[in-house]
């Protein structure tokens, strides 16, 4: 059972990484990075590491994504 979940999550995270690097829109890339972090936090939970999973979900997936968006917003404002 866990193996099937791990395969699905692994495929999701690899597709997310591919989208993050190749999609022409930067905002889509940022969202894809956030999804990769979120999936990684579930993988940590499968590896019996709840502490790391909590940290990754709160910091890697939450705060990092928002900081990326703030900087992207500033760059866009400077462009206009």
């Amino acid at each position: 059972m866990f193996i099937i979940i791990a395969i699905i999550l692994g495929v999701i995270s690899l597709v997310g990484g591919y989208i993050a690097l190749t999609n022409p829109k930067l905002s889509v890339g940022i969202i894809a990075t956030g999804i990769v972090s979120l999936v990684a936090s579930i993988l940590f939970l499968l590896l019996a590491a709840p502490d790391v999973a909590m940290t990754e979900a709160a910091i890697g997936s939450g705060l990092t994504t928002v900081i990326f968006f703030y900087v992207l917003n500033k760059i866009r404002q400077g462009n206009a």
Partner: peptide, 14 residues
């Protein structure tokens, strides 16, 4: 329980 200073600090920052 799982958690600690780093996680709690991140929640406060949120």
């Amino acid at each position: 329980t799982p958690g600690g200073g780093f996680q709690g600090g991140a929640v406060i920052a949120s």
